[in-house]
């Protein structure tokens, strides 16, 4: 069979998952133009760095949720893990610990949650929705327990206050090359995890498991291990965001990260990572997170009420998923069942 020479631009566009990313990117540009038209300071010097920093959290947990969604599972514990990470770090610092061991303890706790989530789903075959709903509650409980159900004091006033201050600067307040570090952290995480997903064996395994678990198993893929890896990435990302949230507020708040898991789903899904598994690319998370933050920030800038803002953002998620479904069912229609 002769291979037809393809137009390189066309080839990139026809690659897997790129379609949705391009569509949503165009939407994002239009959105930004509209906001900027109504309020010209939207893309102004003062708001743009803020906007980028607001995108970062959704990129970070979007990556984690994206990994899990690609394996056709879901992680509902993300928000609570963010809260747990934030509370453990803040509580330990306030009780006189240096930030470094405090962060490490939080990291271990979060990764343990990831292993627990993965094992429940992979080995014990619990429905991911139920399993992670359980860990969601557990982690929120831990976040409340560590400081007796109270928010902590300011971490900068603790024994290692200076070190804590440095931590808050590194993870939230400082800029590098004119952009807040938080955004760079998100970008670095994205580059690393995008590489793993797109160019390594583990990445291939994630897609295979999400597409057809049984076929993946019969192709020599260690399915359980792959699912655990996905949940580990998710918990790790949630841990990083917990650290950032803690740095932002300089305290530990027991309800930090509340309902973030749904935002993570939104960022992934808007970017074309299907909740059915096996499809989507991580570039989608960048775009999805941007749309999310742009809506959030932009609607505020043009003076929309919070309630109305939530309604609009919710509608956008539904429209994006609907578009995805329409495209997919269109394909199914042409296909032999």
């Amino acid at each position: 069979m002769e291979e037809k020479k393809q137009n390189p631009v066309k080839k990139v566009l026809s690659a897997r998952g790129v379609g949705q990313v391009v569509t949503v990117s165009i939407g994002l540009v239009i959105l930004c133009v509209i906001f900027n038209f109504i309020n010209p300071s939207f893309l102004g010097k003062r708001n743009l760095p803020n906007l980028l920093r607001q995108i970062a959290p959704w990129i970070i947990i979007g990556i984690g949720q994206g990994y899990v969604l690609i394996t056709a599972n879901i992680d509902l514990s993300i928000g609570s893990v963010v809260g747990m990470s934030c509370m453990i770090i803040a509580t330990l610092i306030c009780n006189g610990a240096h930030p470094v061991p405090a962060v490490l303890v939080a990291l271990v706790a979060c990764l343990a949650t990831g292993v627990l989530n993965g094992s429940l789903v992979a080995y014990f075959k619990l429905p991911p929705f139920v399993a992670t709903l359980g860990t969601q509650t557990i982690c929120r409980g831990v976040a409340q327990l560590v400081n007796n159900n109270m928010n902590t004091d300011g971490i900068t006033g603790a024994k290692f206050g200076a070190a804590a201050k440095t931590m808050t600067n590194i993870f939230y307040y400082q800029k590098t090359l004119g952009v807040f570090n938080t955004f760079w952290i998100a970008l670095i995480l994205w580059v690393i995890f995008n590489f793993i997903l797109a160019y390594t064996r583990t990445g291939r395994h994630l897609y295979a498991v999400g597409s057809n678990t049984e076929a993946a198993k019969l192709s020599g893929v260690n399915v359980a291990m792959t699912i655990i890896k996905a949940y580990l990435v998710s918990s790790f990302c949630a841990f990083v965001l917990g650290l950032i949230v803690c740095s932002q507020t300089s305290t530990g708040t027991t309800n930090a990260g509340m309902s973030y898991e749904t935002y993570a789903v939104a960022a992934s899904v808007i970017g074309g990572i299907s909740t059915m598994g096996g499809t989507g690319i991580l570039s989608g998370v960048l775009v999805g997170a941007s749309v999310w933050a742009a809506m959030d920030n932009g609607l505020q800038m043009i003076g929309t009420q919070v309630g109305l803002k939530n309604v609009v953002v919710g509608l956008i998620v539904i429209v994006c998923v609907l578009l995805d479904v329409i495209r997919r069912t269109g394909m199914i229609g042409r296909r032999k069942k």
């Binding site: 897997r16 990445g203 057809n212």
Partner: peptide, 29 residues
């Protein structure tokens, strides 16, 4: 049910069981 990842490309399906050959130590394909 058992043979193919129907949502993935032909290429991915052929690649999948042979990743031990096509990827190096670090797992890069």
């Amino acid at each position: 049910r058992d043979g193919l990842c129907t949502k993935l490309s032909i290429r991915s399906n052929i690649e999948l069981p042979n990743l031990d050959i096509s990827s190096g130590k670090g797992g890069v394909v």
